[in-house]
Amino acid sequence: MLTILFIVLFIWIFGGLIKLSFRAAWGLTKLLCVFLFLPILLIGLVIGGLIYVALPLLLIAGLVALLARA
């Protein structure tokens, strides 16, 4: 009986910690994408001569940023 109680509490506590870690990892992933990968991608596209691809991506990102703040 104590073993079952231990297993249930163990899964409950560490399940919550795993859930918290996934939420934190998702937040870090969003930050990296916005502040690191997107600017590097846009700069790489411009240097590579693909300004016609980089400009619409920049406009879409700007519109999403404006709408997210509102």
Rank of each mutant, 00 (worst) to 15 (best):
R69F: 08
I43G: 00
L50D: 05
I47K: 02
A68Y: 06
K19A: 15
L59I: 15
F37R: 02
I18S: 15
G48V: 09
Y52K: 05
T3Y: 04
W12F: 15
L2G: 09
I11S: 09
S21F: 11
A24H: 10
L45I: 07
I40G: 01
F22K: 15
G27M: 06
G48W: 01
L45H: 02
A65P: 00
L50C: 09
I47W: 03
A68M: 10
G27F: 11
T29V: 10
L31F: 06
L42D: 04
L63Q: 01
G27P: 01
L63I: 11
L59M: 14
L66N: 05
I7Y: 08
V34M: 02
F6Y: 06
I51D: 04
I7R: 09
L41K: 04
G15T: 13
C33E: 09
T29S: 07
V34I: 07
L67F: 12
I60T: 13
P56S: 10
L50I: 03
L67I: 13
F10A: 15
L45N: 01
L45P: 01
C33Q: 06
T3I: 14
L41D: 02
I40F: 12
M1H: 10
L20G: 10
L32S: 11
T29F: 05
A25E: 14
I40Q: 02
R23Q: 15
L67Q: 06
L59N: 01
P56D: 05
V34N: 06
V64R: 03
A68L: 10
G49M: 04
G27L: 07
R23T: 11
L20R: 11
L28C: 04
C33D: 12
K19Y: 15
L57F: 05
A54H: 10
R23W: 05
Y52D: 12
L17M: 14
F6I: 12
I13G: 09
K19G: 15
L31G: 01
K19E: 15
T3F: 08
I4P: 00
F10L: 14
V64P: 00
I51W: 08
V64K: 03
I47D: 03
I40D: 07
P39N: 04
I13A: 12
L42Q: 00
V64Q: 04
L45F: 14
I60F: 14
R69Q: 08
G27N: 09
L9H: 01
A25C: 02
I4Y: 04
L42F: 03
R69E: 13
V46I: 14
T3M: 05
Y52W: 11
P56Y: 04
R69G: 04
M1K: 01
F37C: 05
L58P: 01
P56L: 04
A24F: 09
P56A: 07
G48S: 07
I43H: 01
